[in-house]
Simulated scan of single mutants.
Amino acid sequence: MPKISVGLAMTLLIVGNLVAVFSDALIKTLDADTAIFQFVFFRQLTAVLILTPFCLSTSKKSFIDGLKWHALRAHIWLFGAIFMVIAINSMPLATANAIFYAAPLIMLPMAMMLFSEKLTKHSVAAGMLGFAGVLVVIRPTELNWAAMAALVVAVTLAANNLLIRKLPTHQTVAQTLLLTNLVGMPAAFGLAIWEGQPWDWAPLLTAAGSSAFILVYAATCVIAYRSAESNKIASAEYSGLLGAVGVGLLWFDEVPDLAMLIGTAMIILPLVWLARIEKMNQHKQRLQTEL
């Protein structure tokens, strides 16, 4: 896969995060008594059905390369998906998403430890300001089990995005996403059986819609994090919070309070600032190259 610019990678992440909000919104429409493990299994099943046609015409050579990394990401993704359903159905959409967006900050130390990435003062500052915005949104005095579930989701998102660089680069985006969902299905099916609830296929259509939207997000992540260092682009993930605020207001009548608005500004403004810094650095590098 060819390298893309930092600006384009951040743009892809912004688009992916905005689309992902609609996946969360569909999850929030589920009935309170919906079997969580069954729904997560339905999401993976429909994701495989959606992706398979895109992989039929691609080269099958070395299709299972890097299977251990696909398996690791698949089960991290499954773990996060379970807690995501819990978090989204237990708190306002924008609040849950604000906690999910602790992921870019979590990625900074992870990237330093796993890939020896050098953290710039700008990326650290953007991450810290963004996380401070998350704290303003959730207000630590109101931290509860639902917020803890959302924090678990943030950790799994961070780990999954960083592990993308362990995957074989010759595999297409569709193949990568197919394998991630396919190898996680046995565990998801096992959990659905263990759940012991009667099989209810009613949420299947909701699961399919949620899968379609989240696959767009996952695809942008694969492209972006394969092409640029995570500390330079991870703050673009915060953009989806604006979408969550809008969808929560229009779809679920969730009116954001002042703390939510202040926290959102603290999350988004560092992103804009970091993008400008990266653009200036790229301009300086081009000038030096020309000289």
Rank of each mutant, 00 (worst) to 15 (best):
P2A: 10
I4D: 01
I4A: 02
G7V: 06
A9M: 04
T11N: 03
L12K: 05
L13Q: 04
G16C: 03
V19N: 13
V21S: 08
D24I: 09
L26R: 09
T29S: 13
L30F: 01
D31W: 02
D33S: 14
T34G: 08
I36M: 09
F39C: 04
F54N: 10
C55N: 12
C55M: 11
L56R: 13
S57N: 13
I64P: 00
D65S: 15
A71S: 12
A71G: 07
G80V: 09
A81N: 13
I82E: 01
F83T: 15
S90T: 11
M91V: 13
M91R: 11
A103D: 06
M107F: 04
L108Y: 05
M110Q: 08
M110H: 06
M110L: 15
G127P: 01
G127F: 00
L135W: 07
L143R: 08
L151P: 02
V155C: 11
V155M: 14
T156H: 02
L157E: 07
K166F: 04
L167H: 07
T172A: 05
T180Y: 00
G184W: 06
F189I: 15
F189T: 15
G196H: 07
G196Q: 07
Q197V: 14
D200C: 06
L204H: 03
L204D: 00
L205M: 11
F213H: 04
V222A: 12
A224W: 01
S230C: 06
S230T: 13
I233A: 08
A236F: 00
Y238N: 14
S239K: 02
L241Q: 09
V245S: 00
V247L: 08
L258H: 07
A259R: 10
L261I: 15
I262P: 02
I262H: 04
G263D: 01
T264M: 12
T264A: 14
A265K: 09
L274P: 03
A275Y: 05
M280P: 00
L287Q: 15
